[in-house]
Amino acid sequence: MLKLPKPPALLASLGRRLPPAFLSLHFTAGLLVARHLNWLLPPAELEGKRFAIEVTDLGLRCLFCCRHGSFRPSWDAQADLELSASAADFFSLLQGEMDADTLFFQRRLKISGDTELGLMVKNWLDATERPAWLRHRYLSD
């Protein structure tokens, strides 16, 4: 199992006080950097869809959408798909170390909204090869 330190309470409370749109801006900036590094190229099926990511232990909720193949912050309070998990679980998901199914079955990942869109995102993330700096060795243990 991947072990990340618990986020300092200060950071968590800061997250709760910052306006969501401000957080979304930073979050999508991160996704865009990833896209420019050529490892997060959203498939056509995600076009026009609105997403919400909630990082439970940080008190963060980011809203973004996928337009013209790139990620943009969204000011729309509604999302087509909402994912919610802890920072450590989101990180292991991004690394490809944990399987979204496993996290979901253990009630560590919550999905609401369009389930088929969720499956699409999951399969897209699964199929995306991770860059070396992010990759967890699959067979480390």
Partner: peptide, 13 residues
């Protein structure tokens, strides 16, 4: 086939 590469790698190994 619906599971992730992480699943495939660990189960197959």
């Amino acid at each position: 086939r619906q599971r992730s590469p992480a699943y495939v790698a660990q189960v197959i190994a």
